[in-house]
Design a protein around this nucleic acid. Structure first.
Lengths: 192, 192, 192, 192
DNA sequence: TATGAATGAGACTTCATTCAT
DNA sequence: GATGAATGAAGTCTCATTCAT
């Protein structure tokens, strides 16, 4: 059985994904979590704290999931493919969380600059694999930094896609199409 | 000399790009525009009207700019390249406007679903060229819809890049790198 | 006719004198002033600002009134008597204001240390006259600082008196009794 | 070793002296007492009960201390001097408690009118000695009531003094100066 | 056309109090 | 005796909107 803090986190992700950080109300979160408003403040200092907690906690889960899956792969090509696959899968499984991330990326508020640091961290993580692949000569790009962002951009476009088309693209074929596109773009050739 | 309505529009774009739609205040916009708060209500019915006006007006300018530039190109390859180039250029030139777009894309409020229609329209416009290129056999993809979104995603990743790195990538070389990546991904071969 | 800001000030003094700073509510002040709650925030940044404004403005009025009255007296004895008389009169005329001062003197909050600075200033002002009187040999005390505080204490005791006895002591005889007591205490001898 | 209820009382006096009755929180008191919040409610019905208990208990201790000391004196002059001395001493020894009293004297809440009754009681007690001294012709005043309040006012001014000057006046000389001033004011002549 | 004082609904937050353990 | 998670009433404050000038 879930404890109160977890209930609140899930409710907050749902609420913020729907209304954005400012549009989300503590009342709304409380109702969604099935607790009294005061309870939110028993577990978190304030709205911003709750937000930051969600982001950090959420990103940690994402990273751990990917790290674990990628670790099982042997060569860099499979690793990179797995990385893409896992990221797509995680976006599918946590659409609300990613909507929170994407909607809060823009702007000059402190919570947003902090959020950006978390995302930056994550993209560095992607770049690490891009570099590795280039070192092993299986791909050929001249700006790993830029490429890492492009990979991230394609990924997020999936969320945009779903948002704009009101339909889900969670079949394996769709995932493969996207991954193919990414791999093509960086000239990754499968070694036969 | 700019008229009052234009001053307000520019101020609103700046304010909303910094704070988001909800974080932006009519007070803040009035100050940035150098007019009294009441004046905003003389020119627009309310905050949402002002927002919608900005989006529609802004997107029209973007489309016209692209259409005009692309029209001058003869073959589909050049057209597609020009499309990419123009979109990057416009994003560079109107960063604040694109931040508004990106930050408001997510969520279930009416203004957001309306905004999404505008963006959907724009992506359809990209897809038109993808299809055209495929019909002419210069590229080979099996899901033009998905590809159009990926192209859009790469574009937006540029904005993310700048946001996260606090530096501008507005040199021609950077643009070319990105465009190359996009073209590679769809297997576009320059005809010699 | 009084302007809105004055209405708010008077209402705030009344409300705070009755309930203390924390017990006073912005709602209560708004009702007493006959304006909407938002109007308070149009004229003052927040509750603390409103409080500080009242204290500073109020003390200035008090000082000006005293200064003016004392200036008309020729010798130091008359001046000192006038000072006492004026202070009593002002306390009578502005009981609510002095209740605010007295109730907020104690405690470690910032607004309270700021208030204390204002009061300290005022007591220094009393001490100035004590010193002057000692220099002219009409009184004989060995610690003007302490005496100034004692004078202030007697004055405030008047407020305590009224508070505790639910009756007013605003007759001239009462005032003279108190003044006499003060003068006796410092050994001031009327020069015949 | 102190029992829990005593720990709570001391913590409450400290907390209320710092923040006032309304500013003091049950949480803050619990932390200062080193007990859980619920424990406060095991020992007291509610915040107001805790407050009233402190006031009554505290004032009883004060009165007993004074009564005991004064009883040892033979003639009225010594008694009166002792009374003043004891009161100053008690104020010095229980500054926090007196800050609570002084800060809560003003206002129209029930707890405040109850507190005033306790203080009124105490001042009557002073007046008793003023009357006695007058009956014995060692002092000469025409309004014992008013004088009792003035004496109380001078006493409290000591607390104000310390508060405003951030320094303690607990030397015997200081005490004597103040007592002298009081006695002078009422024309008490030491009988040789 | 433009202004800015005034409004009030609704948000965040605090905190005395309860109660199952 | 003692605890601390949970509650919700009530407070401060924000801000889109109105309207007389």
């Amino acid at each position: 059985m879930k404890n109160t803090k977890e209930l609140i986190m899930e409710a907050a992700i749902k609420e913020i994904s729907e209304k954005g950080y400012l549009g989300a109300t503590m009342d709304g979160i409380a109702v969604k979590a099935g607790v009294a408003k005061g309870t939110l403040y028993y577990h978190f200092n304030n709205k911003e704290d709750l937000f930051n907690y969600i982001i950090k906690e959420g990103m940690n889960l994402v990273k751990n999931d990917i790290e674990e899956a990628v670790a099982n792969e042997k060569n860099i090509i499979d690793k990179f493919e797995k990385l893409c696959y896992m990221q797509l899968k995680i976006i599918y499984d946590n659409k609300d969380f990613f909507k929170v991330i994407m909607s809060q990326l823009w702007g000059i508020e402190i919570r947003q600059t902090e959020l950006r640091d978390v995302v930056k961290d994550y993209i560095s993580y992607i770049e690490k694999y891009v570099k590795e692949a280039m070192d092993e000569k299986v791909i050929n790009v001249d700006d790993t930094h830029l490429i890492a962002y492009a990979v991230f951009g394609i990924m997020t476009s999936v969320t945009v896609f779903e948002l704009l088309n009101d339909k889900e693209i969670n079949s394996i074929e769709d995932a493969e199409k996207i991954i193919n596109y990414i791999l093509n773009g960086i000239g990754l050739k499968k070694q036969i």
